[in-house]
Design a protein around this nucleic acid. Structure first.
Length: 668
DNA sequence: ATATCGGCGG
């Protein structure tokens, strides 16, 4: 496509000119389009049978070239009586469609309103109303939406399913889901789009359970065929879903004969948003096997689960796919890659992605800051935060969480205090529970327990369990019984069923040698029927994820793993390993403390990877609890005797261990 | 010659 007139077809060939018009899809084609337009005017008399379709094509083409005024001008030229009213309406529809597609909803509604004065012959029709209602929905204009919907009813067009579907969406998006449901309920025969509209309507109005109910009603219908729209609609309602619902949606997805990319992406997102990380990664592998071409949404969705699982090799392969497909630069993907690498403990790769970016937003900076923070490199995190400020970017609430937690991981007490003050005073950000948790953790672990307690007392919001949990943790480290008991009381009041805190408390007693109290906490747990959440470690080997539990003997290689572990523990005893009996984070039986420590899931996972990977390969382990002191020490010594990097990610941070030294500097 | 529902980060 070129702008020069010499490339235009010879005069007289209207069809070729129309094909040329239809091929103009970008601003660069505008000159060609104008030239073709001029020729067509000369060639086609308004009464010519091709004149009307030509107008429609011209409006579409101008809109596609982002020349909306020109598109509008074509419409304005339609004043001659040679044009039928039908043509005029179609041209209006096409222009309005172009405006809604460009999210110019106010303009769309203005053009819509200007139809009537055109004369009694030019009515909006069943094509126009859905577009108008969509614009009402997008601009949350319930009043206009109601007017339009009642006009539609007066005209008897409300039986049209397109109209009904856009009305459902309009009412729901304007915050009136029950009115949306009335439209849905009154429909004579519903199709899949009707159901999708109602599902997403309830979801968008925040009525997640209603949305899931409608989904369930739909899939049990004898001849219902859910489609990509169904999957995309239900996704929003599955933020914090019940296991049975996730299984149900997964079943519907599996039964879909034709799986469009959006369906795959939605299913991935449902798994990812519900911490079904393994399912998400496995689904992605299935996509690869089935030859489904991923798009940037697919990859941006599956990268966080890769990070969560420390599935470095899959994550790295996704990075290769992104590069091969020429998807970069793309902020969403680059930010996701930074996070994924950081979460896998590959700070260097995370930094490389970050450095290679051609544009960075606050989220990019937050990602790299929290990457350094989680690895215990507080100074670097703080430097990056300052650099971000230097670039004129305004930190938001989450950016402050990143820098404050970096300070707390590294024990940068004064810097953390400074940022907390600057957040509230300079940036007028109201601290949330996360910020308070960082500060209590920072103060508490630095030994300022009573200051941390005072901090909680001065909070402007009700302290939640994480805030008290941070204080209890600090009290355990510094053996502060008095405040520790206050924290424990508050915790048991807030979340009596949360097991981790009982363990923390019993640990605190254990550290102080108060074994009677340890026993009484345990009996409270036993009386309440509380079961500790089992410690589990996961590792990636090839494309498979392996899970280990404490004392696990289910793994096919179990025999070898225990042999290896025995050998390792024997060797590190010789260089200073002495099981930390007091730090019995996950054990149950007191009499067998050392035995239990030696089979903590992270140790099994490390032994498993040592057996199955070649010398020099880094060992990556992700666990669902905080790593205990004993395992931390063992991992450091094992890294020494085997000359392996060990990257241990727990729920709180990342321990990057090289030759016996951990990035956390043993402050954790 | 034209339309309805639908995915979103740190």
């Amino acid at each position: 496509m070129h702008g020069s007139r010499s490339h235009l077809p010879a005069t007289g060939d209207a069809d070729a000119l129309l094909r040329l018009v239809a091929a103009c899809r970008a601003p660069a084609h505008l000159a060609s389009l104008r030239a073709a337009h001029a020729r067509l005017l000369l060639l086609l008399h308004p009464s010519h049978p091709s004149a009307a379709p030509a107008r429609v094509k011209l409006i579409q083409a101008y809109a596609a070239c982002s020349a909306l005024p020109a598109a509008h001008a074509v419409l304005d030229s339609l004043c001659s009586p040679d044009h039928g009213a039908a043509t005029t309406t179609i041209c209006f529809n096409v222009l309005i469609r172009a405006l809604t597609a460009a999210s110019l909803h106010r303009d769309a509604l203005r053009i819509f309103a200007s139809m009537r004065p055109r004369g009694p012959a030019c009515f909006p029709d069943h094509y126009t109303y859905p577009l108008a209602l969509k614009s009402c929905a997008a601009s949350k204009d319930l009043l206009l939406g109601l007017q339009i919907h009642s006009a539609v009813a007066r005209l008897g067009l409300d039986a049209n399913r397109y109209v009904a579907h856009s009305a459902i969406s309009m009412y729901a998006r304007c915050g009136f889901p029950e009115d949306a449901y009335r439209v849905f309920d009154g429909m004579q025969n519903r199709d899949v789009v009707s159901w999708n509209a109602m599902i997403s309507g309830f979801a968008r109005a925040g009525l997640f359970e209603r949305a899931v109910d409608v989904f369930k009603q739909f899939v049990v219908l004898p001849c219902s065929i859910p489609d990509a729209g169904t999957m995309a609609s239900i996704l929003l309602a599955m933020g914090n879903a019940k296991a049975e619902d996730i299984i149900l949606v997964g079943k519907a997805f599996n039964e879909m004969r034709l799986k469009e990319l959006i369906s795959w992406n939605a299913m991935l997102a449902i798994y990812a948003n519900n911490e079904y990380h393994v399912n998400a990664v496995e689904l992605f592998l299935r996509m690869e096997k089935d030859g489904v071409e991923p798009d940037s949404m697919t990859l941006a969705t599956v990268l966080p689960p890769c990070g969560e699982l420390s599935a470095f090799s899959v994550g790295k392969r996704i990075h290769e796919i992104i590069k091969r497909k020429g998807m970069l630069p793309n902020l969403l993907l680059e930010n996701a890659l930074t996070d994924m690498y950081a979460s896998c403990g590959c700070l260097k790769d995370a930094r490389e992605v970050f450095d290679s970016m051609s544009a960075r937003d606050v989220i990019s900076w937050t990602s790299i800051i929290s990457a350094y923070g989680k690895h215990g490199h507080g100074r670097e995190a703080v430097d990056l935060f300052e650099k971000m400020l230097g670039q004129g970017l305004e930190p938001d609430s989450i950016a402050f969480v990143a820098v404050l937690s970096a300070c707390s991981h590294a024990g940068l007490l004064d810097v953390g205090k400074h940022y907390f003050d600057s957040m509230t005073c300079r940036y007028n950000i109201t601290p949330k529970a996360e910020h308070y948790t960082c500060m209590v953790d920072l103060l508490g672990r630095a030994g300022c327990i009573s200051e941390a307690y005072d901090f909680i007392m001065m909070m402007s919001i009700e302290p939640n369990e994480r805030v008290w949990g941070a204080l209890l943790q600090a009290c355990r480290i510094h053996s502060n019984m008095d405040i520790g008991l206050v924290a424990a009381d508050s915790l048991f009041r807030l979340v009596p069923e949360q097991t981790g805190y009982y363990v923390l408390l019993s640990n605190m007693y254990a550290r102080a040698g108060r074994w009677a109290d340890v026993t009484s906490v345990r009996s409270v747990m036993a009386n309440k029927g509380i079961k500790k959440s089992p410690g589990a470690s996961i590792v990636e080997l090839g494309d498979r994820v392996h899970t280990f539990h404490i004392g696990d003997r289910c793994h096919p290689q179990s025999e070898m793993i225990y042999q290896k572990l025995d050998e390792l523990l024997g060797r590190i005893r010789g260089i200073g390993y002495n099981p930390e009996v007091e730090a019995t984070l996950h054990d149950v039986e007191e009499e067998d403390k050392e035995g239990h420590l030696s089979v903590h899931s992270e140790k099994l996972a490390i032994a498993f990877l040592l057996i199955n990977t070649s010398p020099g390969t880094p060992i990556r382990v992700t666990m669902n609890l905080r790593t205990c002191g004993d395992c931390h020490l063992a991992a450091k010594l094992i890294s020494t005797i085997t000359s392996r990097e060990i990257i241990l990610k727990d729920t709180n941070r990342i321990h990057h261990i090289v030759q016996g030294a951990c990035s956390c500097g043993d402050y954790w």
